[in-house]
Amino acid sequence: MEFALATRRGRVGTVVEVAGDLDMSTTPRLRDGLLEVVESGVRVMVIDLTDVGFMDSSGLGALVVAYKEMRARDGWLGLAGVRPPVRKVLSITSVDRVIESFDTVQDAEEASPTAS
């Protein structure tokens, strides 16, 4: 699957829909897209990884950078639709203990601090 990144207005913030493999060749576009969303001033970002089947350490790094940037701006970032191969990378690196993952975008939005 070809890499693609799209943003849309979610119920409580911005949803970033990512498709394709996250590896050294696609991570620069992922990182730039996520930082663009962060710098737009959003308070809540949900990254939908439903259509991501593979992620290497560079993709992981881009997610961590976006998470840190959101936190530095008192924002919140969650992951949605994480498939088993990607979940394994998050688990092995213990990133799943820092960045929350949810089954669906709706679940992530409902768990965000601004949902209440």
Score class of each variant (00 low, 15 high):
D107V: 13
L5C: 06
L30F: 02
G81S: 03
G20T: 09
F54D: 00
D21F: 01
S101W: 01
T7D: 11
F102I: 13
R73Q: 13
T104K: 00
E110P: 00
R29A: 14
L35H: 14
A62D: 00
V15Y: 05
M24Q: 11
L35I: 05
Y67C: 12
K68G: 08
S112C: 15
S25E: 11
S40V: 08
E69C: 07
T14A: 07
E69V: 03
K68A: 12
F102R: 10
E100H: 15
V42Q: 09
G33V: 01
A72W: 10
A66M: 11
R8N: 07
Y67K: 11
R73E: 01
E2K: 01
E36M: 13
L5F: 02
L49Q: 09
L60V: 07
E2G: 02
T104L: 02
T50P: 08
L63Q: 08
P28S: 08
L49P: 09
L63M: 15
V52P: 00
L60C: 10
A72I: 04
A111V: 09
E2V: 02
P84T: 06
L5K: 03
W76H: 10
T27C: 04
R71F: 06
D51T: 05
D96W: 05
V38E: 10
D56W: 00
T93L: 11
V89I: 12
D96R: 08
K88D: 03
T93V: 13
S58W: 00
L30H: 02
E69L: 11
L5G: 05
M70L: 12
E69K: 15
M1A: 15
M70I: 05
V46G: 10
R11V: 06
V95S: 01
T7I: 11
F54N: 00
R31M: 06
F3E: 06
G20D: 08
G81W: 00
S112P: 05
R11S: 08
A6T: 09
R11A: 07
E110Y: 10
V64Q: 11
V44D: 13
E110V: 13
R71K: 14
V37N: 09
G33E: 03
D107S: 14
T114A: 13
A66R: 02
A6W: 03
L77Y: 02
G13A: 07
V46K: 12
L49R: 08
P28F: 01
S57D: 11
R83W: 01
V16Y: 02
E39K: 15
R29Y: 10
S94V: 04
E69T: 06
M45K: 09
V86Y: 00
T114E: 13
P84E: 15
S40A: 14
V98N: 04
V18C: 06
D51V: 05
G59Q: 00
L77S: 03
T7W: 06
V82I: 09
L60E: 10
S40K: 07
S116K: 14
R87C: 06
E69I: 04
R43P: 01
L35P: 03
V98R: 01
L90W: 02
V52L: 07
D48M: 10
R97Y: 03
A19L: 06
W76G: 14
L35N: 12
D51E: 15
A66F: 08
V37E: 15
V12L: 05
E110M: 13
T104V: 03
A19S: 13
V18P: 05
K68Q: 14
L90D: 12
R11C: 04
M70G: 03
R29I: 05
A6S: 09
M1I: 08
F102S: 10
G20M: 07
R31E: 03
I47N: 07
E2N: 08
R11Y: 04
